[in-house]
Structures are given as structure tokens and as C-alpha cells.
Design a protein around this nucleic acid. Structure first.
Lengths: 396, 396
DNA sequence: TCATTCTTCGTAAATATTTTACGAAGCGCT
DNA sequence: AGCGCTTCGTAAAATATTTACGAAGAATGA
């Protein structure tokens, strides 16, 4: 009785999850997607209909026989998700509904990550305030999803790099208690990959790698249709693979890391050094405007075709491409997406990446992998955080 | 009825497979391992008992309550597997029983891989002869498992590098027809990983990488407890990741491949060059003996502590270690095994590999991964070929 | 235009599987 | 030895899947 109920609740959650991911589905669709029999799914759908979670929405277009009824989530049964995306400097938030629309506009908050124990307090205060001022009642919030840099163990809800807490308390559980809401945390790049897998370039792919170009170069991996996080949750440390010829010491303490030549901070420094040598660029003016970070200005300039930014970015692209060639040899992925913040300048990056692949990849392998630029762009991390909640929350 | 029978046959196969892998199991064990209910497994086991496929073997040691009956495969119901392991030069075969004992001694056969269309014919003739002269009746042979270099698509039974056939015939299907036996083919490194996963160093691990040190450096990957072959079956092309500083052109046509500095052939050449310069080594004598390949002589000498071989191997080990550091950053595996032919000299390799990891890995990541030398050694490829058959064959 | 044939949907009945309940078997402690 | 506790494995009950089939509709062709 109890085990059965548990299974049935799981099925209901799966149905809602699939409707969240696919918007409009028929009973046979749901049966296939949840791997449950049609009669069982039918019962679950009928229950959900009666409770008002979902709505019937006419008949599906014919596929050659009797037309199937379609179902979608009921907008009136309002449920929302708090999505949080953190980077080294800034934390962004948004509140989504179950149709992936933004319910409460994005807010951002300067929160430079460090070892400071007071950091957690600032985060909690900001989130409390953000949720409160949204005016959405607690019971309509499904949960809070957070993407963050560092070594994150999503399963245990720990971040081994930032937000270390005293005692044996994990970050997730602490936040959950403080906010009185379910909280899920994950690595930023994993969430970018999750978003690309569900709603982006990797929608059709079961093996997908997302290169998350931000302050560092992250990597989110989808293997066999699910996120791969490695044995202890630290897979995808692409930034620090030994590949650069540069002798500079990386922030991680090693030499030769990919990051040393490709981090946005380094690219900005390179641009500044060139300008100091007298090279002229629109970056000179842009960097003066501190409403946006220098890195974002750099990406904007590259996108707009500024020769200095383009040339520096292209050089980095070659090395990123060499790293991607390594990935292709090891993983033989179906799709690689250039995603995250840097996808703004994705078109500029594509050329050198492709060039590096031509130079360093066995053609037979290279032609098995499609490389594309993310359409989701910088939204992907927030979206991924929202998906994380929907896929793991309990609903009713 | 038909779908039910299919499921039931699958369960019987799973039971046999688990008994093959674990030798002695109880009903609750089997229920857990096959993810089927105890009553169902009990019925299947009773049927298999009655048909003589398995035997009851007393009670299991107590775990605090009533002792469970144990079951094992019946040796008298004789079934055998033909295992074939190919490398660039030599093809080895052995016949195993379901207890992993070698029933028919290993045979080897010089078959240098090339584009020659006559190659398939030679292979077929050799296998036919080997099977015939073993004296084992056709119906007692479960199938033929073959591990081979090249771009192998195990699912479709194709090798895109060697043994290309005219028309639309795949290698596996062709061999199967010629030998009148089920045939399964896979990449050599995948099978080495399969063997390590089932009976070797990775028995307890669900995320396992096996670096197959042979004429090139292969990589077999186990992710979430099953072999990962990539989108088109070509994952693990570790040999050709761009990592070497060496400017020599690789056999694949690119520069910078790991293989350029680490292939056994290259190491042998380096040793010869050193000796030509007057360095003395026992290799001088060994290379003259052509009963074994120069590569094997080289590994033997290294194992025996020959300074020239050790120094050349150590140098290669550093680069392999750098490659392994890359793998650790990307995959965060639980276990990495140094396996295949080169594991004979595994102890010699461990030191430089560990050194490279210290130099190129973030400590936090490095400490999550255990690196060990294969105990199975060169047997692993044949064993893997046998496992491939047992795990995929139809039995009765 | 309309009947015929085909395909797919979704429910009802039949079949299979899992869950739960329970007696049997056995350890370990007093 | 007796009692409490745990695990095994079967029988009965509950649940899920498969199969069968009528209904709904599309495609075809007279």
C-alpha cells in the first residue's frame, strides 16, 4: 500500500514533469515518456485533471488514425520556481512559472564569492527579500534552484569550494531551512547543460556536451539522456585540463591549464595591455562604463566586430577548440554546444574552434559531432536552475 | 503471451548472466541484481534447476536470520564461448567455459591488419579451423566474441577501419553466417574495460576508465555501470588527443597525438636508436629473438628493470599521465586502471603517471580517483570477448 | 459523395508481476 | 533452553501490463 502510493505519486510527478518539458502531450506520448502502461497513465491523468493540475486541450493532429486528446498544465493552478544563477561576482535571480515564462523580473546582486563565512548570510537575506517582495505566497513556490561555481555535489547538496558551513550542515539543507522552501543546488555548468538538453540545442540529442564559456570554461555533460556529474560530482573541470603552452600559473596553482589563456578575465587583461601599447579600440570607452562588467563589454565588442576583441577572442577560440578536439576524441558526442555567457560572441568563436578541430581531430570523428552555438545564451543558467527544481520537486 | 514469454526469457538470461558473473548467488541476491521480484525470480530459478542449467549448492552463510539456498551454473550443461582478441599484428583465440576457465588453450595467428579484402577470408578460415579442431560440437558454443582495433560500432556489428566488406554486409553478420554461430564484435579497449569491470580492478566501481596500453593507447570507459561507447561507438580515442609537444606526424595524419610519443612501436624505435648510439641494454639480445614481438620484449625488459627500457617507458609514462590528468578533470572517475598488454610493466609506469597527476591535476580531483594496475593483464581482452558473448547471447 | 479500408486511440478483460503477509529457519543473547 | 530478532521463501492480495476490441477518424477509390 505504501510502496504503491509512492510509485503512483512518482508517476504523477513524471506526468507533470513531461508536460512541463513538452507543453502538450497525448496519453500515448505520456505512456511512452514515463515508460508506464497506457491504462495506468490514463488513471493518473484523470486524477490530475480532476484535481485541476492539468487541462484537456482538444485533439492532436491526426497521425493517420483516431485523434488523441491532448493535455497541458493548468495555468490557474499557479506554481512558481525561484531560479538563482551565481558567478564569481554577481548572483542573478528570476521567478518562473511552469510554462517557462518569467513571472518576476530578473534581479541581480553583487556577491563576489570568497571564503568569507558571512557570504551565506548575504545570500539568504537577498533571497528572502527577493521572494518576499515578489508577493508570491510561499505555498505556490515549488522550490529554489541554484547554480553555482565550485565543486558542487548536487546529490548531497554540498559545495566544497564556497559557502562552507560550520558543523556538518550542507549548504542546501541550511538554505532550505532558512528559506522554508525546498532548495536544490548544482554546478553552474551542469545547469547550463540541463537547459540546453531540455529546451536548447541538445533537445534531440542523448549525448551532449555544453562548453560553458564564462569567467572560466566549464563543461556540462549529458550522457544517455541524463546529466553526468562523475563519481563525486566534479566532472567537467574543463578549465583546468593541461593543454596550454603558456607558462603562467593558474588560479588553481598549476601550469598549463586551459583557463590561463581563455578565461574572460585574461582576455580583458590582454585587451588592456594591447591598448596600453597604443592599439585603439572601442573597448577603451566601454571599459569606462561600469554598469556592465569588463567581461561583458569585451563580449559585446567582439560581437560588434571590434578588431581587437575579435582577434583576442579568436586566439582563445583556437585553444578552446583544441580542448574540444580532446573532448571529441574521448567522448564521441553527438552534439557540442557553445553555451553560457560567452555564447553572445559564439559566432566569432565558431571559426577558430572549427579550425582547431580541423587541425586536431581525426576527420572520421569530427564528422560525427555537430557543433552549435547556444540559442538560450545567458538565460540558460537560470532556466537550468528552474528545470532542476521541476525535475526534482515533490509537487503536492 | 508473446511479450510475456520474451520478458521471461530475458529474466532467465539475466539469472544465468548474474551466476556467470558472480558464481554463487541466493534468490534475494538474484532478485536484487535482476531488479525483479522474489517470487518471479524463484519461478525462473526453479525452471532453470529443472532443466539442469543451474544447481543448488547448500546454504549461504548466515546474515543474521534464516540461511538462504545458493545456486550456481551447472558445469555438466556444457556451454562454451570462443573468444578472439586481435591487435595490429596478431590474433589470439581461446575457448572459455561458463566458469571462466580456459577449455581450449590459447592459439595465436599472425594476421597483420590492413586494407586487404582477403583478410576476412583468412580470419574466417582460421576461426573455422580452430573451432573444428577444438572438437566442441557447434550446439555447445554460445557464440564468438571478437575484440578488434579500429572504429567499431558494436551495436551494428561494423568495423569502419578494417575488414570492410563489399555490399551492405556488416562484418559481424558476415562472420556469423560463415561460422554458423552468433558473433559479437567490439573495440579492443572496450572489451578490456568490460573485463576489468566484471572481474578485475573495477569490480566494485560504477565509474571506471581503463587505459589500454598496447601498440597504441586505447581507452575503455564504464559509466553508470555500463560500457560507454559514445554516440557512434567511437569514444575512447585516447591515442589521438592533442597533447604531445612532439612535431612528428602521427599515423592518423595529425600532429601532437599522444600516440606519437607513447606507442610501443615508437618506444622500441627509441630504444633501437639509443642502442645504435652505443647505449648498451639487454634489449640488444632480446630484439634478435623473434618468437616474441619487439614490443613484448621491450615490456619484459622494462619489467625486469633494464635501465634503457625503464627510462624510455618512464618518459612515455609522464605523457600518459598528463593524458590521464586530462581524463580525471573531464570525467572525475572512481577508478582508473592501467590495463592491457602494457600492464606487464604497470609498476614501472605507475611512478611517472602519478608524478604527472601530481603536476597536472587539481589535488581535490586527484584524490577522488584511485589508480591501479590491472591484475588481469593481457588476458583481459580475451576475457572481455567472452563476457561480451555471455552478456548478449540467447542461450537456449 | 460516400462506402470501404486502414490506422490510431483508449477502455475492458485477461494475464502477469509485485507487494504484503506470514510461517519457517536460524542466529545470538540471557 | 527459551526468547527476541532477523532473514528466507511461499501463499494470498493488490497492482500493473498485455491483449483484445470497439470507437473515432483519415485515406482511398469507386
Amino acid at each position: 500500500m505504501t510502496a504503491t502510493l509512492k510509485k503512483y505519486r512518482q508517476l504523477r510527478r513524471d506526468v507533470i514533469k513531461q508536460l512541463y518539458l513538452n507543453r502538450l502531450l497525448t496519453l500515448p506520448d505520456l505512456s511512452r515518456l514515463t515508460a508506464k502502461s497506457l491504462p495506468l497513465v490514463t488513471t493518473a491523468v484523470n486524477d490530475l485533471l480532476q484535481e485541476g493540475y492539468i487541462l484537456e486541450s482538444g485533439l492532436a493532429p491526426s497521425t493517420g488514425g483516431r485523434r488523441a486528446s491532448t493535455f497541458l498544465l493548468n495555468k490557474d493552478k499557479q506554481k512558481y520556481i525561484v531560479a538563482v544563477a551565481m558567478d564569481q561576482l554577481v548572483t542573478r535571480t528570476a521567478i518562473y512559472d511552469l510554462h517557462n515564462n518569467i513571472k518576476v523580473e530578473e534581479a541581480s546582486f553583487s556577491l563576489p564569492l570568497s571564503d568569507d563565512p558571512a557570504l551565506v548570510k548575504s545570500l539568504v537575506d537577498f533571497l528572502k527579500d527577493y521572494i518576499l517582495s515578489s508577493g508570491i505566497p510561499q505555498e505556490q513556490i515549488l522550490g529554489v534552484g541554484i547554480g553555482m561555481p565550485g565543486f558542487v555535489n548536487a546529490e548531497l547538496g554540498l559545495n566544497h569550494t564556497f559557502f562552507k558551513l560550520k558543523g556538518n550542515v550542507g549548504l542546501r539543507d541550511y538554505l532550505s531551512k532558512e528559506l522554508s522552501l525546498p532548495v536544490m543546488i548544482d554546478n553552474d555548468s551542469s545547469l547550463v547543460a540541463l537547459a540546453e538538453m531540455r529546451f536548447g540545442a541538445g533537445k534531440a540529442a542523448s549525448d551532449l556536451l555544453v562548453v560553458n564559456i564564462g569567467w572560466g570554461i566549464g563543461l556540462g555533460m549529458v550522457i544517455n539522456g541524463s546529466l553526468f556529474r562523475g563519481h563525486s560530482g566534479y566532472a567537467g573541470e574543463f578549465s583546468h585540463i593541461p593543454i596550454s603552452q603558456n607558462n603562467k600559473i593558474c588560479s588553481c596553482g598549476k601550469r598549463g591549464c586551459l583557463e590561463v589563456d581563455t578565461s574572460l578575465l585574461v582576455l580583458v587583461d590582454k585587451a588592456k595591455a594591447e591598448m596600453a601599447k597604443g592599439v585603439s579600440s572601442r573597448l577603451q570607452d566601454l571599459f569606462a562604463d561600469d554598469r556592465k562588467s569588463a567581461g561583458d563589454h569585451f563580449l559585446d565588442a567582439a560581437k560588434a566586430g571590434d578588431p581587437l576583441a575579435v582577434s583576442i577572442l579568436s586566439e582563445a577560440g583556437l585553444l578552446i577548440g583544441k580542448g574540444i578536439a580532446t573532448l571529441i576524441h574521448i567522448m564521441n558526442p553527438q552534439v557540442i554546444v557553445l553555451g553560457g555567457r560567452g555564447s553572445i560572441a559564439g559566432k566569432i568563436l565558431m571559426a577558430p574552434v572549427q579550425q582547431a578541430i580541423n587541425e586536431f581531430c581525426i576527420p572520421m570523428l569530427a564528422e560525427q559531432t555537430t557543433i552549435s552555438v547556444s540559442q538560450l545564451g545567458i538565460k540558460s543558467e537560470l532556466l537550468g536552475a528552474a528545470i532542476l527544481v521541476v525535475e526534482n520537486c515533490q509537487f503536492s
